[in-house]
Design a protein around this nucleic acid. Structure first.
Lengths: 131, 131
DNA sequence: TTATATTCCTACCTAGTTGGTAGGTAATTA
DNA sequence: TAATTACCTACCAACTAGGTAGGAATATAA
């Protein structure tokens, strides 16, 4: 299940892409347009700025802007950065403890397959598809 | 994210399919073989018996058995019954409140597409694929 | 220089969910 | 009659989701 963090991040990215023609896009405006809590968005955005998807400029007249063209952002990239976990089962998580039953597990291949179709779908779309 | 309920249900179904040649399969044995809590499994199983995927027989010598051939169980069916929620975003849940922004929502089609690829994958495999 | 606007950082909180444990009842058979 | 099984319901601790809140750092405009 995709949580609000990832869903809001996507909406913010679309909003910025749609409005950055005017220059920097302040998050205050995004929050108002999208009807989301500014304070909550402020917690989500560092995942995007620290990884270089967005550039934030502080101070009066500041705001955010994209660092690439919209078609260069795959949705999977946005979600993997903002979503705590995208893996469909816990044993496929990054920091998952090694499973004792792994060798005899009859289901792991099935879950890996699910993980693959999900990521392939998410990476098949870019921000441009939402404008 | 698929929770233990759905994952354990799948393992139980595979275990029963693998062992029902000997007759009824008691959950006590399944729990031991799979190293899962019997008491927890007992909470999950009603979702499968009440919907006719399994038949439980009480009393000494009792146990469970499949009601169909393994290739007639799609994995999606098992998970949709045992998992509380399979939809990737809350607004696609069954009892989801109508979203005010639905008309103007630029992302809903994307999430519906994700929901589709997930369910198509889950329904493309049957129990037989795990034996 | 001062007021204002913005990003950025960190602490905290509440309701709900997850992943069970526990104890017992009803049904069936050896 | 004893044992074994499915079935039912209550409870609980730890964690997570989805925020609220307050302020610090930075930059600009007046």
């Amino acid at each position: 299940m995709i949580s609000t963090r990832g869903r809001y991040a996507l909406r913010v990215m679309i909003d910025i892409a749609s409005n950055e023609a005017d220059g920097l896009v302040p998050m205050r405006d995004v929050a108002k347009r999208q009807d989301l809590s500014l304070k909550y968005l402020e917690q989500i955005l560092p995942a995007l700025t620290k990884n270089g998807l967005l550039k934030g400029t502080q101070g009066k007249g500041g705001g955010y802007h994209l660092t690439r063209n919209p078609e260069e952002y795959r949705i999977g990239e946005i979600l993997r950065l903002t979503e705590k976990e995208l893996a469909p089962v816990s044993c496929l998580s990054e920091g998952a403890a090694a499973c004792e039953r792994r060798g005899a597990c009859k289901t792991i291949g099935f879950w890996e397959g699910l993980n693959n179709v999900v990521n392939e779908y998410l990476d098949s779309k870019t921000l441009k598809d939402f404008l």
